[in-house]
């Protein structure tokens, strides 16, 4: 309970300092709107249903992109872990691609798919699939050799060794991979929407910016942050915690 109180005081403090600073230095609303303005524009977008519509559109893209990325990541990760030549060649390309933020592919994506949903989904898939691939590959490669030996002495080998031992043994890495993939996908989605077509949270943010509505811009930023935290804590950290508990592994904070 003490933690919650600390946090409430912290956020109230930010709120008060922000409000005071604007009054004190007479900052105009186009530079930095007051927190009350942000709150009222947040309320406005909730009441007229536009926020819900944007969220719906954004999440549809996100879910499609993330599912495709996880599928590709799992299969490609297994492929790299199992085929040495592929790991030595394609693997190096994937590591290189990892250091390119997926959003810089947008100009090309727009040429290939047009200024529409598909381009944004492409960006999401690219960003999320790479991190999932890398984690899945590591997971399969790091399976304790003892598990494999033990299974072999119990007459399990070949495909069934892979399905019954290697795959389940790589689950902790896969879960971490999925969590990172979500984080990459969420950022790629916002960047993609900001630079491409609507409807969606990112697009509305861009729209508000074009009209100088900084209160709306900040309101959407807050929504993006809050959703990011909620999904991470409520879905991915929960799953991760459950796996850690079941396996008896320590959770790193």
């Amino acid at each position: 309970m003490k933690l919650a109180i600390k946090r409430i005081i912290f956020y109230l403090l930010i709120f008060v300092i922000w409000e005071l600073a604007i009054k004190l230095f007479e900052i105009p609303a186009v530079i930095l709107p007051s927190p009350m303005d942000v709150l009222s524009s947040l309320k406005e977008s909730i009441n007229d249903g536009s926020l819900l519509k944007d969220l719906g559109a954004s999440f549809t893209r996100l879910v499609i992109g993330l599912i495709v990325a996880l599928l590709i990541g799992v299969l490609l990760g297994i492929f790299l872990a199992k085929v040495k030549t592929a790991d030595e060649t394609l693997g190096s390309l994937i590591i290189a691609l990892q250091s390119i933020p997926s959003i810089v592919w947008l100009p090309l994506a727009i040429m290939w798919f047009g200024l529409n949903e598909k381009s944004v989904i492409f960006i999401i898939v690219l960003g999320a699939a790479i991190v999932m691939t890398v984690n899945m590959r590591t997971g399969i490669k790091n399976v304790t050799p003892l598990y494999i030996k033990a299974a072999q002495t119990m007459g399990v080998g070949g495909v069934s060794l892979f399905i019954r031992v290697i795959l389940p043994a790589s689950i902790p890495y896969a879960v971490t991979g999925a969590r990172l993939a979500w984080a990459f996908a969420w950022r790629a989605l916002m960047a993609g929407e900001l630079l491409s077509a609507g409807p969606g949270l990112g697009y509305t943010l861009k729209y508000a910016s074009d009209f100088g509505r900084m209160d709306m811009v900040i309101a959407i930023m807050v929504v993006i942050g809050v959703i990011g935290v909620i999904v991470d804590v409520l879905i991915f950290q929960k799953i991760e915690q459950r796996v850690m508990d079941k396996w008896g592994l320590e959770q790193q904070a």
């Binding site: 003892l146 598990y147 030996k149 033990a150 002495t153 031992v165 389940p168 043994a169 689950i171 079941k246 396996w247 008896g248």
Partner: peptide, 11 residues
């Protein structure tokens, strides 16, 4: 076979 470590599957 019984190994030095129990080699039980944690899942």
């Amino acid at each position: 076979m019984v190994f030095q470590q129990a080699a039980l599957f944690p899942w």
